[in-house]
Amino acid sequence: MSDFWPSELKVSKDRRMLSVTFNDGIVATLPAELLRVLSPSAEVQGHGPGQKVTVPGKRDVAIRAVAPTGNYAVRIAFDDGHDSGIFTWSYLRELGETGEAKFAEYERELAEKGLSRDRR
């Protein structure tokens, strides 16, 4: 279990950002695109090492819904139909702390594969 618990989850009016305030006062502001392309779902992460998928075309994705999953996570549904990722509190905290670096790596992967953040 995580030592960090959210005291507030808030989706922005335009549905493009999720803000998570943790019990220690740290606030993670997470873009919907980052959450979608780094979803912990098997669809994105694969079922084993080396199976991770680079998901293109999600620059304009929005959060459709956020639903609690037990007392340890939330399931985030996106407007592109993806809704199988269960985001634990510790994973949301990790994304808040390292999301910029992870997103830069994602952008490098897109470039290497000739893919784009924009829908084609």
Rank of each mutant, 00 (worst) to 15 (best):
F78C: 00
P68I: 04
P49V: 12
G50C: 08
R64T: 10
R59I: 04
A42S: 15
K52S: 05
A77W: 03
R64L: 13
P68W: 04
N71R: 09
V66Y: 01
I76M: 07
R59A: 14
R75P: 02
V53H: 10
V66H: 01
E43W: 10
Q51N: 09
G48I: 04
R75E: 10
G57L: 06
H47G: 15
E43D: 14
T69D: 10
P56W: 01
Y72L: 10
G70N: 02
V66P: 00
P56S: 09
A42D: 14
R64H: 10
Q51F: 05
T54N: 05
D60K: 04
K58D: 08
R64Y: 11
I76Y: 01
G57V: 08
Y72D: 04
A73E: 00
Q51G: 00
G50V: 06
V61F: 00
K58L: 12
V55N: 02
I76D: 03
A62S: 14
H47I: 13
F78E: 09
V55F: 00
A67I: 10
I76S: 02
A65C: 04
G50H: 07
V53T: 07
V61K: 02
A67V: 12
K58Q: 15
E43G: 12
E43A: 08
V55E: 07
P56T: 03
V74I: 13
Y72I: 11
N71F: 03
G46I: 12
V44A: 12
H47T: 13
H47L: 13
A67D: 14
F78H: 10
A67G: 08
A65S: 15
G48E: 08
P68S: 09
P68L: 10
A73I: 06
A67N: 14
A77I: 03
F78L: 06
A42E: 15
A67T: 13
D60S: 13
Q51C: 05
F78Q: 02
G70Q: 03
A65V: 05
P49Q: 14
V55S: 03
G46D: 09
F78T: 01
R59K: 11
R64S: 15
T69K: 12
D60R: 05
G70D: 07
Q51Y: 04
V74P: 02
P56G: 06
T69A: 15
G48M: 06
G57I: 04
P49S: 14
R75H: 00
V53D: 01
K58E: 14
F78S: 06
G70Y: 05
K52R: 15
R64Q: 11
G48N: 03
D60Q: 05
V61D: 00
G46C: 11
G57T: 11
A77Q: 12
F78Y: 07
G70L: 07
A77V: 10
K58P: 01
P56H: 04
K52D: 09
A73W: 02
A73G: 00
